[in-house]
Simulated assay, not measured.
Amino acid sequence: MLDLNPDVRSWACGTTVLKVGRSKHVPDLQMEEIDGRLWLLDVFDRKNLPDATGLSVEASGLSYRYRVVDRAEIYDGFRLKNANDLLRYAGHNVPLGDRIRLLSLLGEHGPLSLSDCLRAVRETQPVAAIASLILQGYLEVELDDKLIGPETMVRRISG
């Protein structure tokens, strides 16, 4: 899910050790946001976590922010299902012609429905091409409102 969050520059499995009293704890994930903020994250069902306040204080001393990710952030809504659907196409190569056609179309007309974008793809599988361009950061769609479908609006990411 972090791979599809436009505010996340990078993330990795945790390696930073936080010491709270006599306890040592390695948070599940380290994350950097595009604005440079650094986070240490724990998944919701971790057992035997040291005091969250102590973890926050220790993380702050290392220039990180700390929080426990709530179960609802992962499982409620459509984001996880949409992320799984898109990630299936992570290795798909989009030919230059299709990428240019899609980006030009969206640059000229603004956001378009997924079904309209599918018509612009000529050299490869249309759904795979659009999903891959979303994963590569060229295009974006709303992942939280409903499952991705023909009426889902596709926007070009300027950059």
Rank of each mutant, 00 (worst) to 15 (best):
G91A: 05
V94C: 02
D42P: 12
A83G: 11
L55G: 02
R79Y: 09
F44K: 02
N93Q: 06
L87C: 05
R67W: 02
A83M: 13
P50I: 00
E33I: 02
F78H: 06
A83W: 08
E73T: 08
R99W: 04
A90G: 07
R99G: 12
F44T: 04
L49C: 11
P27S: 07
M31A: 13
Y66R: 00
D85W: 15
L80W: 02
F78P: 02
S63Y: 14
D98M: 00
A72M: 09
A59L: 09
S63E: 11
S56H: 08
P27F: 14
G61T: 14
T53Q: 14
E32I: 10
D51M: 04
L29Y: 06
I74W: 00
G36S: 11
G54N: 05
Y89H: 11
G61P: 00
S63W: 14
D28E: 09
P95S: 05
D98A: 01
K47P: 00
N93T: 15
I74D: 00
N84P: 10
G77V: 07
S60M: 10
L41P: 15
I100A: 09
G61W: 10
A72K: 04
N93W: 08
L38R: 02
G97Q: 11
L96I: 15
R99I: 11
G77Q: 03
G61S: 11
Y89S: 04
F44Y: 15
I100P: 04
R71N: 05
F44N: 08
L86V: 15
H25I: 09
L38P: 01
I34S: 07
R46C: 13
M31I: 15
V43F: 15
I100T: 13
I100V: 15
V57A: 05
K24F: 06
G61M: 13
H92F: 13
L86I: 15
R67V: 03
D76K: 02
N84K: 10
I74E: 00
R99C: 12
I100Y: 04
N82L: 03
R79F: 11
A90H: 14
P50N: 03
V57Q: 05
L55F: 09
D76Q: 06
P50L: 02
L87E: 12
V68F: 03
G36D: 05
R46W: 05
R67P: 01
E33H: 06
N93I: 13
F78R: 05
G91R: 06
K47N: 06
D98S: 01
R46F: 10
R88E: 10
G36Q: 10
L96Y: 14
A72I: 06
I74F: 02
L29F: 12
